[in-house]
Design a binder for these strands. Structure first.
Length: 519
DNA sequence: TGCTGCGGGTTAA
DNA sequence: TTAACCCGCAGCA
């Protein structure tokens, strides 16, 4: 890459008798040292792929052809912040909407909605009843304090042929749902009883999400889309899919998924801290970012892997770039294990999932400040003014160390049942690390069998279990259904509510319907 | 109705 | 001076 910008180290004088032309000022894009406030931005000819879940201190350079970059899009709920600089657009994170009761869905997923960007709309969100119908909790905002107590900030700047993005801080909260999810839900008009539209949206979302998750490349994605469509059509034609087909779909999709979850060679972590090793740079993700290089699929994971590993990063179902998003260290390790398993002739998805759903939680979670926050960038931290009157309790949805809750000691349950003390019983086949509550609270959903089949293929339940569940569906004709998205396998699921999901024949100990709240 | 960008203004260090 | 934040406005979907 040829750089025309600044911060290019001058070649050291070479004591040779014959003048040698200086080597071209080539330097990897990832090695460029620049700041959003620089008077002149470096010029690059190679751009980063868009990452809507950028986390931690990082800098990215997008091309003007990137629509998302032009729109300054982000998976995080970022609101505009006036920095009185017309050249630099600054945004600060609004955090995430959580349930005050810290409820969990029957699938073990937690509630993490996207705060509205508009102040007025956000005020309306707060205090609303938890979308989990079985929960009496209220929605509360967990403010982002990931930048040394202040919200994580994003800076955007257009200069030359690139769109420069710089993030400061590491989000100390789960990912909110993707923007698309919020919009889709809004389309439902609060639709707790709107089925067809919800199912339609969910189906579209599932397809889109799966496409994203299986996006090793655009070309492959196209192929995958066609395959998915064809496969889906086939399943629709045969609602009662035999187990063989189901398993085939499982293996195919799982293999495709795993193939996109490539471990990052050479990426090392400190065994004790879990931090990316060997990086003392201000840019905590420096090495990771270097690893990121120009290879997005692997690199995005590496890029986002750093900062803190306390969270299993939640997947954005409708984000068009979710697959490039974050998987923290535990996920990385899981991916490595997964890949290893694939090499071992692709075992049952059940086994894969069992490995996948045990994210390591830090024994002690930093309360109020991320562990990895260097905070050496004090230029943006001088203010101590209150963030917002809309701030709610910090970590309101989490069990901090010593809380003595049902969760594992010191675990920070953000995402899922297996993380918490949730009994890993049979119903953990519904385990998800996150969810997109889609409020498909409809009593009869037989026409969602296509969904169910597809979800079941991912949910690694045995065919016998599926039969049982289908029987339960039939028996429980009046049961409510939830539409949720897993945070790991990118699967949208329609599931019964607690009353039906925790059927005695399938629910394990500790999953009693009378105890829907696990936090 | 909500998102986004912009910009004036206030507050605090 | 700097940064965070509030608020209102306009354009847009």
């Amino acid at each position: 890459m040829v750089l025309n910008g600044m911060n290019i180290p001058m070649p050291m004088p070479v004591p040779v008798p014959v003048p040698v032309p200086s080597p071209p000022a080539t330097k990897s894009r990832v090695q460029i040292d620049w700041d959003i406030n620089d008077s002149k931005m470096p010029t690059v000819v190679e751009f980063d792929e868009f990452n809507d879940w950028a986390n931690g201190h990082c800098r990215l350079i997008y091309g003007h052809q990137s629509d998302e970059a032009r729109k300054h899009a982000s998976g995080w709920a970022m609101r505009n912040t006036n920095n009185h600089n017309v050249n630099i657009l600054k945004k600060s994170c609004l955090g995430v909407l959580l349930c005050s009761a810290k409820c969990k869905l029957p699938n073990g997923a937690s509630v993490h909605l996207r705060p509205a960007i508009c102040d007025k709309a956000r005020r309306k969100q707060q205090g609303k009843q938890c979308p989990n119908r079985n929960c009496n909790g209220r929605l509360e905002i967990q403010a982002c304090r990931g930048h040394c107590g202040y919200p994580v900030t994003h800076f955007w700047r257009r200069d030359g042929n690139g769109i420069y993005f710089q993030a400061k801080g590491t989000h100390d909260h789960p990912r909110p749902e993707a923007k698309g999810s919020t919009e889709a839900r809004r389309l439902l008009a609060g639709g707790r009883r709107v089925r067809s539209l919800a199912v339609m949206l969910a189906r579209d979302a599932a397809l889109s999400d799966k496409l994203c998750s299986l996006r090793p490349s655009k070309r492959q994605a196209k192929t995958q889309l066609l395959q998915e469509t064809a496969s889906k059509r086939k399943r629709m034609e045969v609602p009662q899919a035999p187990s063989q087909e189901l398993q085939g779909a499982t293996a195919t999709t799982a293999a495709a998924y795993l193939s996109t979850s490539t471990p990052i060679p050479g990426l090392k972590f400190d065994q004790q801290s879990g931090y990316p090793a060997g990086n003392g740079s201000q840019w905590c993700g420096g090495d990771l970012y270097t690893t990121y290089g120009g290879k997005q699929e692997a690199g995005a994971g590496a890029y986002d892997t750093g900062m803190y590993n306390g969270y299993s990063m939640l997947h954005s179902p409708l984000s068009s770039h979710s697959s490039t998003g974050s998987y923290y260290q535990d996920n990385l390790q899981q991916h490595q294990q997964q890949q290893h398993q694939v090499q071992l002739q692709l075992p049952s998805v059940q086994e894969t999932m069992n490995v996948n759903y045990e994210p390591a939680m830090p024994a002690s979670y930093p309360c109020g400040m991320p562990l990895y926050e260097s905070c050496d960038d004090t230029s943006s931290l001088t203010s101590s003014s209150g963030y917002s009157s809309e701030d709610y309790s910090y970590f309101n949805g989490y069990n901090l160390p010593g809380s003595g809750s049902g969760l594992g000691s010191g675990s920070l349950d953000v995402s899922g049942g297996a993380v918490s003390g949730h009994n890993p019983s049979a119903q953990d086949s519904f385990y998800t690390t996150s969810s997109e509550i889609f409020s498909v609270f409809e009593s009869t959903l037989n026409d969602a069998g296509v969904f169910y089949d597809e979800a079941a293929a991912y949910q690694q339940t045995s065919y016998h279990q599926q039969q049982q569940q289908q029987q339960h569906q039939q028996q429980d004709a009046a049961a409510d259904y939830y539409y949720s998205n897993t945070g790991v396998d990118n699967v949208w699921n329609i599931q019964m509510d607690a009353a039906s999901a925790y059927h005695p024949s399938t629910a394990g100990a500790g999953a009693a319907p009378t105890d829907p709240i696990y936090c």
